[in-house]
Write a protein that binds this DNA or RNA. Sequence first.
DNA 1: CTAGGGTTACTG
DNA 2: CAGTAACCCTAG
Length: 455
Amino acid sequence: MLDPRITSWILEFVLRQPAEDWMANELLFALPLPSPLSPRLKKILLLRRLSSDLSRPSLSARTLLSLELIEELERYAGAGAPSNSLAAAYAAVAVECTTRFLRERSDDDHGEDFFDAVNRIWNCRVADLERSEAAGLFSPALREARREMEEAIVNPVVRVGLTGRDTKKAALDAVRVYLEEAEKEMGPPYLEHLAKAVCEEWMSSGTGRDGSVVELYEMLRNLLASQGERGRYEGLPDDNYEDSVLGRDKDAPEQDNMEENQNQMDLKLVFSVNEGAGKGPNNDDDAIARPNLMNQDPSDLEHVEENRERASLSFVDKGTKDGNPGTTTCVGDKRDCAGAPKPSLMDWNPTARTFEWDEDSIESPSENSPDPSNKLHLPSAKRREISLPLEDNKTFVKRRRKKKWSSLEEETLRKAVERHGVGNWKFIKSCHPEIFKDRTEVDLKDKWRNMIRCI
DNA sequence: CTAGGGTTACTG
DNA sequence: CAGTAACCCTAG
């Protein structure tokens, strides 16, 4: 049985070679790996995924997720703000993931896929990012891109401009730049490092060596033993090795618990951004997906150890609905609810009827939430389910408190109907999740009915 | 999901 | 109490 420590090095070495993805996958499955994986190996796996996306070339929401996870990994490792190249790659990929729907429009698509993508990526994902601890990824470029996407929703000229721009090349280039920088920062694979160390010792040992394989083996064993004595399970040659990989500032004062965090931060924490989300059948990869090896989600790294035997963590997209807008999912602050199912726009069925309002929360919706910025877009917490027998239900089911439509809501609805036509209530609501956060699609429809009655 | 009829709450 | 806006119910 191979030492998991050694298999980590082998895997690292292979992942960083231009080997075929299938081979990397085979090894990932076949080798006994330490659990939890080291941060270094996690990052290498994520970088490999990016590299695979580049070579296909296919940038998708999973590319975005890989970048987010790398940022999170580095942040947990105590690194400072994400590098410019990481933030630039994130912004460029986010733009590409949106604008490709303009390029790939079919005849019967009137731009809905693009609008969905803007909502999904910019109104939800990037908005969540801005509020989260990962705000370091929220670069000025990303802010500007968001402004442009919002403009594109209402301005056809901007959409035409976006369609003509080669955002795919820009994103591929940005990811390539980041990958090169990350590779450089990471240094050579540890096996190479080890081989070099052995060679150097060999060269400097002078006489008394017979040059046999047995002797080489002895040297290697001594080197490994010395690593073991130092308690460095990952067997890294020196303390700076992993620091350099994760972008840790070696000169920065070491936090007392940093080492502990490093060791205890298991994959559940690192890759928790996906956990619990995307459970519905309409889930697609643009929605943040639940860990699922079959979907080759980067977060699946968490479950590599236990799932290797029954599923394949592939670097190759095997044909998920990449790019299909699917469900409009909006996650909350994923850092605040790690491990818990994440609410989404779809979690609240606005047409559900067996609910009643929590009067207190209506009166003071934010009183019980010290930090409203961490809250989700929709007031799902204001409702609670009633599960009484049908005959008793009508006694308890209350109507929502009447709330007069504001002029902003009215104006937004008017413009949205002009733009998207009558009858697309759900879509209109999804285009303005904040403005219509207290309204259902039916409310929009009813309001429009009232508005045209007045004319 | 939407349309359209029904119900409720509010206002003058 | 009538008119109206907001909200609910349900067939298709």
